[in-house]
């Protein structure tokens, strides 16, 4: 393996080059690992719910726990109005979670450590939430930019600040996930490199760090998926229940 800790983030083409005009649509290792994550989810959920039983088997229990976890998260943060959006948030949460977890396996590739992947997801959520807000409330949705109880003199300034705060949502959402995943994986690689270069004599200390970091990374992988999903719920809540 290469010693450079950033090599693990390289995207390379697998198979033939596919081009439509200027757009490169070739199958890359990133697409491969997205496909792997999606198939893991599909196969798991299919087999765990195939033989439905009142007293669930172990594998059915896991998928039921997952379902309940997301359902509770949505009803806690966005209320009952958000029920129709359950499938989307569930898929989003599980996809990010499995992508992060697949990335924890040695020799694999972390899809979510690329800002373009997280940015596309965040922008999709941002645009969808904005459209939902306008569909539900019409032009009254613009009132989220105008907080109540502000002096008229300050109103233009506050409105600009609110608009920037609103526009910063997709940026903070995507940067958070991407930065956490990339920093964690770089750190793991750096400590792994220390183990090799220090050898049998001094390699034990970085090795123990590496073990601890792996545990931390698994926690972060879960937590970031959770934060991403719960922020989606919060934004959805802002759009569905307009209040100040």
């Amino acid at each position: 393996m290469a010693a450079n800790p950033m090599v693990q983030f390289n995207v390379y083409r697998i198979g033939p080059e596919i081009k439509f005009g200027n757009i490169d649509l070739s199958f890359t290792n990133a697409s491969l690992f997205m496909l792997i994550s999606a198939s893991i989810i599909t196969i798991f959920l299919y087999f765990s719910t195939k033989n439905k039983r009142l007293v669930p088997s172990k594998i059915q229990l896991i998928s039921e726990l997952l379902y309940n976890f997301v359902a509770k998260m949505i009803s806690d943060t966005a209320g009952s109005k958000a029920k129709p959006y359950f499938p989307f948030i569930f898929s989003l949460f599980v996809f990010i979670l499995i992508c992060n977890m697949v990335g924890m396996l040695p020799y694999s590739f972390t899809v979510t450590s690329h800002i373009i992947v997280t940015l596309v997801m965040a922008l999709f959520i941002f645009i969808a939430v904005t459209i939902i807000g306008f569909l539900k409330h019409g032009l009254k949705y613009l009132s989220i930019f105008v907080p109540s109880g502000v002096p008229v003199v300050l109103l233009p300034l506050i409105t600009i600040i609110e608009i920037i705060s609103y526009l910063s949502r997709p940026v903070s959402l995507s940067v958070r996930l991407f930065a956490n995943m990339m920093a964690g994986h770089t750190m793991l690689k750096v400590f792994g490199g220390f183990v090799i270069s220090l050898g049998l004599v001094g390699g034990w200390l970085p090795l123990s760090f590496s073990v601890a970091l792996t545990g931390l990374e698994i926690l972060v992988a879960f937590l970031q998926a959770y934060v991403f999903a719960i922020l989606t719920c919060i934004y959805l809540n802002d759009a569905l229940n307009l209040h100040h």
Partner: peptide
């Protein structure tokens, strides 16, 4: 822990967007 990780990017993102 999730909230704690949230705060930092929240600040930076708004500055970047502005």
């Amino acid at each position: 822990l999730g909230n704690a990780l949230k705060l930092g990017t929240e600040l930076v993102a708004a500055v970047v967007v502005g």
